[in-house]
């Protein structure tokens, strides 16, 4: 075990492109590898993914392991776990990081179990304990009511990381790295999982319950036009629009987006409450939100008690200006 060295990133590729989370992981991995003065490697698994290697190097990896096989086209637990097991046993990294994604949350615990080590899922911070060279992993627990810092003695130390928790490096295409092709060595008979169909949800935007950003309008929005404005903002933030009960009752917004005691329960990462007073019936549906941002004309509104950031003012002026500024910052 003592010869476990380096940080390995399990890189996800979608439509032939490095995913955002993979870029962020490479950024975080680079930093950890530097702290440890060890190597950062990336593991790319899939079918027709070998050409991604240079991009991964540009984002910070020193060494790329590519396992490219038609059998690996779809993510299937049994196939992927076998591949990860094979590569990890061959490379012996100290740390293995994955994204907290559909794949990561399924693959990480099972692979860790097979490798006789532990894993921590959905982390938001990673540090190195300089004394023990152990990875310190911070993750929210109790539904966001508390945080825990974990570490483990077993190697490799496996963790999945929440999207947007880490920062990607600015890609540097001049970076040099080594690419190692590893044979998948899979027995098709041993793969028992079958992906029959992939269904992309029909919703125009993101499903309210799943959205990591929710923009909610309250009674103060005053009419259906206001909700169109909120929708635009939500689109810019890649989020969804919600509403408190009065706008739904008044028919300004569809019933399906009502958040609260008598509606949907959401717990997005960012919850922007626009002209929402913060009545407990409404808060019932969104108090699990990690960060509440309140925009309200009434400085005494209860919503400010729940909010992390607040703006006191007229939403009709604030929302367009806010949207414009966000667009400007995003384009940078």
């Amino acid at each position: 075990m003592a010869d476990n060295k380096g940080v390995m990133i399990f890189v996800e590729v979608i439509d032939g492109k490095l995913t955002n989370i993979a870029q962020e992981l490479l950024g975080a991995g680079r930093k950890l590898a530097n702290d440890l003065s060890e190597e950062l490697s990336a593991l790319i698994v899939g079918s027709g993914v070998a050409n991604i290697a240079p991009e991964a190097i540009a984002y910070g990896a020193d060494k790329i392991y590519v396992v490219d096989a038609p059998l690996l086209k779809d993510y299937r637990t049994d196939a992927y776990v076998a591949v990860v097991e094979k590569v990890v046993k061959q490379v012996n990294p100290r740390i293995l990081l994955l994204g907290q994604t559909t794949i990561g949350r399924d693959l990480a615990p099972r692979a860790a179990c097979r490798l006789i080590t532990g894993a921590i899922l959905d982390c938001i911070a990673l540090d190195i304990d300089t004394a023990t060279k152990q990875l310190l992993i911070t993750k929210p627990v109790y539904g966001g009511n508390a945080r825990a810092v974990y570490s483990m003695e077993t190697l490799p130390q496996v963790a999945t990381v929440r999207a947007k928790a880490m920062t990607a490096l600015v890609p540097d295409s001049s970076r040099k790295g080594q690419v190692v092709i590893v044979d998948a060595g899979l027995d098709p008979a041993a793969i028992k999982t079958n992906v029959l169909q992939k269904v992309v949800a029909e919703t125009t935007g993101i499903k309210l319950e799943d959205a990591s950003v929710v923009v909610t309008g309250g009674r103060g929005i005053g009419g259906p036009e206001g909700f169109k404005q909120l929708e635009e903002l939500a689109k810019v933030l890649k989020g969804a629009v919600g509403a408190t009960r009065p706008p739904c009752d008044a028919g300004w917004a569809p019933d399906t987006i009502q958040i609260g005691l008598t509606g949907k329960i959401v717990s997005p990462y960012v919850y922007i409450a626009v002209a929402v007073s913060g009545a407990s019936q409404h808060m019932a549906g969104c108090s699990g939100s990690k960060n509440i941002i309140a925009i309200n004309r009434d400085a005494e509104a209860a919503i400010f008690k729940e909010a992390r950031f607040g703006v006191v003012g007229d939403w009709k002026k604030i929302i367009p200006a806010f949207e414009a500024k966000v667009k400007e910052l995003q384009s940078k």
Binding site: A146, E153, A299, E306, I318
Partner: peptide, 28 residues
């Protein structure tokens, strides 16, 4: 296999940081 080093409650929540500005547009 996992050791809990620390369990804590993130300090924030009740304190709302009010974003100021000259006009509503500035605040935004």
């Amino acid at each position: 296999r996992i050791k809990t080093r620390k369990l804590f409650q993130p300090v924030r929540d009740s304190k709302c940081e009010i974003i100021g500005g000259e006009t509503d547009e500035d605040k935004a």
